[in-house]
Design a binder for these strands. Structure first.
Lengths: 213, 213
DNA sequence: GTCTATAGGTTGATAGAC
DNA sequence: GTCTATCAACCTATAGAC
């Protein structure tokens, strides 16, 4: 028993039967496919291969289940990373940021929309977002700070508000993900893609050519 | 009876009792306050001051009611205006566009989110948006075209993709409205406002100073 | 912790008078 | 077109055995 590091074999505590987790997975699946109004405990139980009773045992009630799904996604997925390596240029910064944000939103947007379908959930999510300083605000401010540093090191032109730039960049990611999720996967295919957007922003942010001085 | 122009007195056909419209108003109210999952025909009837039977008479079923609400907002409110007066400058263009888009989204976003709560509604809305060439796509393309004209007249720098700029501008509006509606009315108050965003974009888009040539 | 069985309450929808 | 009355279905939630 002491021969092997415990953590390499199994997590502490009693082994999970998997039912509890399976319910969350099934619930998220139902949310994506049918929407929050159509999510019934019956359907979730069926898909998860458990009884309805188990759902209420673990999550108290329907709202508790939905809350757990939301919390799960938000904490499990983590927040979009905003840091960047030291030697990176502007393009690397924007590329990393946008990719991270879109990847985050691709998973998180479902639960945000889900929360909008019920006043209790909406209130609960809003409280959590402002209380823990999560939400769009945080990513925007972080990118803004990076851009401000870029202005100091001469990487970014200095006559614009870095936070405003950050809003534009974040928003474009948000809109792209929302559009695809809310309308259709290939809606807006003839609009400039992420790559093109980053390129454009890099051009806009480049400092005036040195021969000006 | 012929003394007065008919249109000045009353619309053709039988006078409306107002019940039908009252239901739509009440339904929208419930959607805003409680969310789609909590919208019941009973509650809508109560608020509208009509019987439940009337709702089904007019809108067939619950989904029919929600569909009517969506259609109503989308057609009644119209699409954001994208045109601009001839002699306007870049700031006037962006100012008018962003104000119009935000005003539109302030009313339209509720129904878009509502549609996400039910697979049938989502599908129906998506079909309508792509079929009638509505949706974000349209506004973005329209602004992009205006910006392209601006490039030709020397109002806008020529080394960037106008459509990409349009995406940034539209997205910022979308994100601002979504944030306030989904989280809280004053969330993100310390982020740059619409005015500041427009100013920043104007600076970014200004053509290189003439003494360069 | 998970199941089965069931109770209790709501809801969407219909029928028929006015 | 609107109402009242009512139904049938569904869904959440609980109780108790294993």
């Amino acid at each position: 028993m002491a021969d092997l590091p415990r953590s390499a074999r199994a997590p502490r505590g009693r082994p999970l039967s998997g039912g509890r987790e399976a319910v969350l997975v099934a619930a998220l699946e139902v949310l994506r496919e049918m929407g929050a109004s159509r999510l019934t405990t019956r359907e979730v139980a069926r898909r998860a291969g458990v009884s309805e009773g188990s759902i209420f045992y673990h999550y108290t009630d329907r709202i508790g289940l939905l809350t757990a799904v939301i919390e799960g996604i938000l904490t499990d997925v983590g927040l979009p990373r905003t840091g960047l390596s030291e030697g990176d240029g502007l393009r690397e910064l924007l590329d990393g940021f946008t990719e991270s944000v879109e990847s985050f939103l691709n998973r998180a947007l479902v639960v945000m929309i889900t929360a909008q379908s019920d006043a209790h959930l909406r209130e609960s999510l809003a409280g959590r977002l402002v209380g823990n300083d999560m939400g769009p605000h945080r990513g925007i401010k972080a990118l803004g700070a990076e851009l401000r540093r870029g202005q100091e090191t001469g990487l970014v032109r200095q006559d614009v508000d870095p936070d405003a730039i950050a809003v534009f960049v974040y928003s474009a990611c948000f809109e792209r993900v929302a559009q695809r999720q809310m309308i259709s996967a290939d809606y807006g295919a003839d609009l400039p893609g992420r790559d093109s957007l980053v390129t454009t922003m890099c051009t806009l942010l480049a400092p005036p050519s040195p021969h000006d001085a």
